[in-house]
Design a protein around this nucleic acid. Structure first.
Length: 420
RNA sequence: GCGGCAGUAGCUCAACGGCGGAGCAUCGGAUUGUGGUUCCGAGGGUUGCGGGUUCAAGUCCCGUCUGCCGCCCCA
């Protein structure tokens, strides 16, 4: 019989990795709460059209990376490949634009992309997603970078770079597109096959190419950053001033491009060389036209996503200290009769109690208790019961004492020992 | 989607084409009811899966699945 295992690129999350996820989410919520973000849970499945219209129909994500299927009713549905699309849909559907001046929301959950798995790249992966709707001022751009900085500091992560760029607005991008195509037309022969395709669909992405030949070509090319319109230029300058006020070091990377169509003005990427090929573990940017394009009122937007698995890889490997636990070792059937009352009293008294389900030798039970890293072991056998006592052994101190066999008393002594 | 490497006990890995092993982990024992160190012992495997070559395949060949590295993409 063939063993059933997870689908390719899908994993069970357990042990240290799950602890890291919890730690990351806890640290994140600390700052999201303080900055006024509300958490929201969104569906994993949405109409395919939502992603096509937001992310862009010529992006790789939409073209070949979505888990898409036709449901029984004939609708094309897709597992969400990212969170912003659903956030925008929710913002419009719940009418938040009408009930509040600005909206700060975040969500944490799994995303799905049908890619070839690699370290730090899975078909099901977890993202923390943050969005702000209704603020066009660059102060919020800086606030998000600041939030990321506080969050990473909290996790003791310091080997990373913050790269920022501006991809301009619709008007500066349209006019630049012509300039760029004209430049590359003359040097077509020097570009790789991938870039020739990009030239047709999204010429800006040529700047993203790692091919040395293409990098040489783009080194001579005009940059969108240098031909931003006045408004976009002012926005970026003010953003940099605010970043400076927060005391954060950033690198302006004029070649930085994002793979999703909706981005405008400020874009950023947090990368680490400790991650291998998938260097970016946080990325985001502004999308000032998206809400309107999706049928809402003109509303500025900005957000970012954290790749939780990738961030977890940057966390130190050290195991969490196990909690302070107690163990009850019973010798004989008479002692077993005390298990239920002792367990009941311990749990009510907020004390962790472990015990063996099988009637094992005391030696085996002690070994088990040690294995579980229990700090204290209660030993109960005929000797103790006849005296109306119970033995309490301090495993680290290798000392033991006898206590009256009274559950309330036992719990109060354990509490005292565990807190000291 | 493309290229390369790999898959043997729960984990890390050995085994010239010739009887599948070790360390760690788990469990038990070392004279009455006391853990870690030590000693002894036990359990655990269709060698990822399916074909093929061969007297004989963990080992060679083909396919497939999965992982890893790079490309691509992206968080």
């Amino acid at each position: 019989m063939e063993k059933i295992r997870t689908l390719r690129g899908f994993r069970d999350i357990l042990g240290d990795e799950l602890e890291k996820f919890k730690k990351i989410e806890q640290a994140f919520r600390k700052y999201s709460t303080r900055l006024g973000f509300r958490e929201i849970e969104l569906p994993i499945l949405e109409k395919t059209e939502l992603f096509v219209r937001t992310i862009g129909d010529t992006t790789d994500i939409v073209e070949k990376e979505m888990f898409t299927f036709i449901d029984a009713g004939g609708d094309s549905l897709s597992m969400r490949p990212e969170a912003t699309a659903g956030m925008v849909r929710s913002y419009l559907q719940e009418g938040l634009y009408a009930t509040e001046r600005l909206t700060k929301v975040c969500t944490i959950g799994p995303m799905f992309r049908h890619e070839r798995p690699q370290k730090g790249r899975y078909r099901e992966f977890r993202q923390i997603d943050v969005e702000v709707f209704g603020v066009k001022e660059p102060l919020v751009d800086a606030e998000l970078i600041f939030m990321i900085r506080m969050f990473l500091d909290d996790l003791d992560i310091d080997r990373y770079r913050i790269e920022v760029n501006s991809v301009g607005c619709k008007t500066c991008r349209e006019s630049f597109r012509g300039v760029l195509i004209e430049f590359f037309e003359d040097r077509k022969s020097e570009l790789c096959d991938d870039c020739l395709r990009r030239l047709e669909r999204n010429p800006l992405r040529i700047f993203d190419c790692k091919n040395e030949q293409c990098i040489r070509v783009t080194a001579d090319s005009p940059l969108l950053f240098n031909s931003l319109c006045g408004e976009c230029k002012d926005h970026f300058d003010l953003f940099q001033k605010h970043i400076n006020d927060f005391g954060i070091d950033i690198e302006v990377n004029k070649r930085l491009v994002r793979g999703l169509d909706y981005y405008t003005k400020t874009v950023f990427e947090i990368t680490s060389d400790d991650l291998g090929a998938q260097k970016a573990f946080i990325a985001g940017g502004r999308y000032d036209n998206l809400v309107e394009e999706m049928g809402g009122p003109p509303t500025a937007g900005i957000g970012f996503a954290v790749g939780v698995e990738r961030l977890a890889m940057l966390l130190p490997q050290k195991m969490e200290e196990s909690g302070r636990e107690c163990f009850l070792a019973c010798i004989g059937d008479r002692a077993r009769g005390y298990l239920a009352p002792v367990l009941k009293a311990c749990l009510s008294g907020d004390i962790s109690l472990r015990y063996a389900y099988e009637a094992k030798s005391l030696k085996a039970q002690m070994r088990y208790a040690d294995n579980l890293k229990c700090n204290f072991v209660l030993i109960l056998g005929d000797n103790e019961i006849d005296k109306g006592m119970i033995t309490l052994r301090d495993m680290a101190g290798k000392t033991q004492e006898e206590l009256p066999l009274d559950v309330e008393h036992i719990v109060s002594v354990l509490k005292e020992r565990l807190s000291g």
